[in-house]
């Protein structure tokens, strides 16, 4: 039952991504191309999502446990450090190059785009570099 609820949340998230148009890299390029023919759609996706989620997050902050019983795990980090800045910078460059980010590219892959599969393989490799601290192993 719990897993079904989580499945449903993923489904709603995915349907939102599809409906919003964000699975198409051209919509991302159109948004990032602020000096050209600008497509502000992404701003409305993010704005709409944020407005809906503000109150639930405020509610979550006052609780110690989630409805399914797990402890509430809101991020506690508050330092703006080099890791945050450099990571976000790299993420933004990759996002601008391909027009894909982690959620939409999964949907694109299931929709039958082989390019998305290539991107996902590289993305998982990039994540593994972080998870297994591979830069330390290759750095020596």
């Amino acid at each position: 039952m719990q897993l079904l609820i989580l499945w449903g949340l993923g489904l709603v998230f995915g349907l939102g991504l599809i409906l919003s148009g964000m699975t198409n890299p051209q919509k991302i390029f159109g948004f990032l191309d602020v000096t050209g023919a600008w497509d502000p759609s992404l701003a409305l996706v993010m704005g709409g999502a944020v407005i809906v989620a503000i109150f639930p997050f405020a509610l979550a902050r006052r609780r110690t446990h989630a409805l399914l019983g797990a402890p509430m795990q809101l991020p506690r980090a508050n330092r703006i450090d080099a890791r945050l800045v450099c990571g976000s910078l790299a993420f933004g460059v990759g996002w601008g190059l391909a027009g894909f980010c982690p959620g939409p590219v999964l949907i694109a892959a299931v929709s039958g785009a082989p390019e998305a599969v290539i991107f996902i393989a590289a993305m998982l490799t990039g994540m593994a570099i972080f998870e297994y601290r591979l830069w330390e192993k290759f750095g020596r």
């Binding site: 989580l6 919003s20 409305l44 996706v45 709409g48 809906v52 409805l67 797990a70």
Partner: peptide, 24 residues
């Protein structure tokens, strides 16, 4: 479409934090 899709994403993110206590 984008506003409606965004609202769905916000709904899923809200559900994730309230139901499961995790960031979506």
């Amino acid at each position: 479409r984008s506003l409606a899709g965004g609202a769905l994403i916000g709904l899923a993110a809200s559900g994730m934090i309230l139901v499961n206590g995790r960031i979506a």
